[in-house]
């Protein structure tokens, strides 16, 4: 059962990177992963500010030019900083962000098993 779980998780994470979608979907997906700088707190996709409308146009132009999703993120990161990305990339700054919850999960599991299922001597 446990092995199966781990297996499923691995498959899932693999799947995440294999997303395929057509162009409009890609465009929407990118816009959803960007944070609007004018109405901070909204995604570019959700926002109707002038900035967001133009940015959506830029995204579709870049896709037409043949840029990949990653390249577009990098391009915008270079212009506006990492803040614009809703999906922080794994880097020195974000190791804790991504790994701490997983660590907590496993630590929790270990604590439960040790406390309740391994018979103590004494």
């Amino acid at each position: 059962m446990r092995l199966l779980q781990i297996f499923l998780i691995i498959i899932f994470i693999f799947n995440l990177n294999l997303l395929k979608a057509n162009e409009i979907q890609t465009e929407n997906k990118i816009a959803k992963n960007l944070r609007c700088l004018i109405c901070q707190g909204q995604s570019v996709y959700d926002s109707d500010s002038e900035f967001a409308l133009s940015l959506k146009l830029v995204i579709s132009n870049k896709i037409d030019e043949g840029m990949t999703e990653e390249q577009i993120y990098d391009f915008l990161k270079s212009k506006y900083g990492e803040w614009i990305l809703y999906d922080p990339v794994l880097s020195r700054n974000t190791y804790f962000l991504w790994l701490l919850p997983i660590l907590i999960f496993f630590a929790g599991g270990v604590i439960i098993v040790r406390k309740f299922y391994i018979k103590k001597q004494s």
């Binding site: 700088l37 004018i38 500010s49 002038e50 900035f51 409308l53 133009s54 940015l55 146009l57 830029v58 132009n61 212009k79 506006y80």
Partner: peptide, 14 residues
């Protein structure tokens, strides 16, 4: 006209 050059410039509004 469409605001795209400003984005390429790295600006964000007026």
């Amino acid at each position: 006209r469409d605001g795209t050059s400003s984005i390429n410039w790295g600006a964000y509004g007026v």
